[in-house]
Design a protein around this nucleic acid. Structure first.
Length: 202
DNA sequence: TGGTCGATCAGCT
DNA sequence: GCTGATCGACCAA
């Protein structure tokens, strides 16, 4: 359709976060397309952001990809069992990223349903249909994203973001699960589509 | 509808 | 040894 190129990602994570809401994340697994509209994100601003893994310029094996090219994926393991996926923003050597917190399933809904619950989308209960991708760990399971996707370039063929010209109303709020981040807990760096059921909270 | 709690492990200290 | 950008199960009311 309309795959976004490198220049789209080369901007601050706050800007990129807002631009990503409403776009479509696509993952092709062995030729099978799985996709969903990005409905909720959070910006992590890097060096000066106490909530970011790269706060203070912390550069380790884990955070290394955030220092890389904008438009690549940063995938990390949280609580020993869930993956979270980010899109790297900013310039090279500027460790910013946008966390994807919720998507609305579009293509490959049966594949997603199988990844999450081992059954077809049709067979899911009402609750399961919402819970399929309304959280950062959940959407990674549904879309088949794990640590092997760390560092993958969204400007290539099997993983990318496209613009289908959807322009929903976006609202901002405080980021979730960062109680340790002192003054940064109050920054309104979470953005989501208003009234969308696949938003994780609020 | 909301609170608490266990799972499970890489990256730090 | 401790902790976390989470989730789901369980329990109380």
């Amino acid at each position: 359709m309309n795959k976004l190129e490198r220049s789209f990602y080369r901007k601050s994570s706050i800007q990129l976060a807002q631009d990503l809401v409403g776009k479509v994340l696509v993952h092709k697994i062995n030729g099978q397309k799985v996709s969903g509209r990005i409905v909720e994100v959070e910006a992590y601003m890097g060096i000066e952001d106490k909530a970011a893994h790269s706060y203070g310029g912390k550069r380790t094996k884990r955070t290394e990809v955030m220092f890389g090219m904008p438009g690549i994926l940063y995938v990390f393991l949280i609580y020993g069992m869930y993956s979270c996926v980010n899109i790297v923003a900013g310039e090279l050597e500027e460790p910013q990223a946008v966390l994807i917190r919720g998507i609305e399933p579009l293509d490959g809904v049966d594949k997603m349903a199988f990844n999450r619950y081992g059954k077809t989308f049709e067979e899911l209960s009402k609750k399961e249909r919402v819970n399929i991708t309304n959280g950062p760990g959940k959407l990674c399971i549904a879309m088949g994203i794990d640590k092997t996707a760390n560092g993958v370039d969204l400007c290539k063929d099997d993983f990318f973001v496209e613009d289908d010209k959807c322009r929903p109303e976006i609202v901002s709020s405080k980021r979730i699960g960062i109680d340790y981040a002192e003054e940064a807990v109050d920054f309104l760096w979470r953005y989501h589509i208003k009234d969308n059921r696949y938003v994780s909270k609020g």
